[in-house]
Simulated scan of single mutants.
Amino acid sequence: MIRIRGKVGDWPVDLTVELDAQDWAHLAANLPVKAEEISTPVTSEAPKTDALWQSTLSLVSKAGSIEGPQLMAQLTGLAGGELAAKQLLVRLRHCAQIRVESTADAPVYHWLGQ
């Protein structure tokens, strides 16, 4: 995963790009250093990330519906940190199995299933 932060003109930019093993290989092939010198965190983190994602989906599935702050607290403990929990929340927002309802107090994450 690569995080890019900065500005484009007056607009703030905070972008996270996920690369798979093939993308890392392509990037490594085009750098002026040897590919062996580049670590590929995607391949070493993939099993952990997949298990964490499945646990996240299971958590929402079991709850049926859960408010954002409560989900954030549970994901922070599950993922081991606030940044990882926020990334999971973003991923949930784009998941076809989840519907996010915006309410006056907090977003509510609803399990839609398959």
Rank of each mutant, 00 (worst) to 15 (best):
S65N: 14
I66Y: 05
L83M: 14
K62S: 09
L52R: 02
E82K: 15
G77N: 13
Q54L: 10
L88N: 01
M72L: 14
G81L: 05
V90S: 14
L88I: 09
S61Y: 14
V90M: 09
G77L: 12
S55G: 11
P69I: 01
L71Y: 05
A51D: 10
T76I: 09
L78D: 01
L83F: 14
A63Q: 12
P69G: 08
Q70F: 10
T76Q: 14
Q74M: 13
A84G: 09
L78E: 05
L78G: 03
S61A: 15
A84Q: 13
M72Y: 13
E82I: 08
L75G: 06
G64D: 07
E82C: 06
G80W: 04
L75S: 06
S58Y: 09
S61F: 12
Q74P: 02
P69Q: 06
L57T: 00
K62T: 10
S61E: 15
A85P: 01
Q87M: 13
I66G: 01
G64F: 12
L89D: 00
Q87Y: 13
L59E: 00
A51F: 05
Q54S: 11
I66S: 01
T56C: 06
A63D: 05
S65E: 13
K62F: 05
S61R: 15
S55T: 10
Q87W: 12
A84S: 10
S61Q: 15
L75H: 03
Q70T: 11
I66W: 01
M72D: 09
A63E: 10
Q87R: 14
A73M: 15
V60Q: 00
E82H: 13
L88Y: 07
A84V: 01
L83E: 15
G68R: 15
L59D: 01
A63S: 13
E67H: 08
K62C: 01
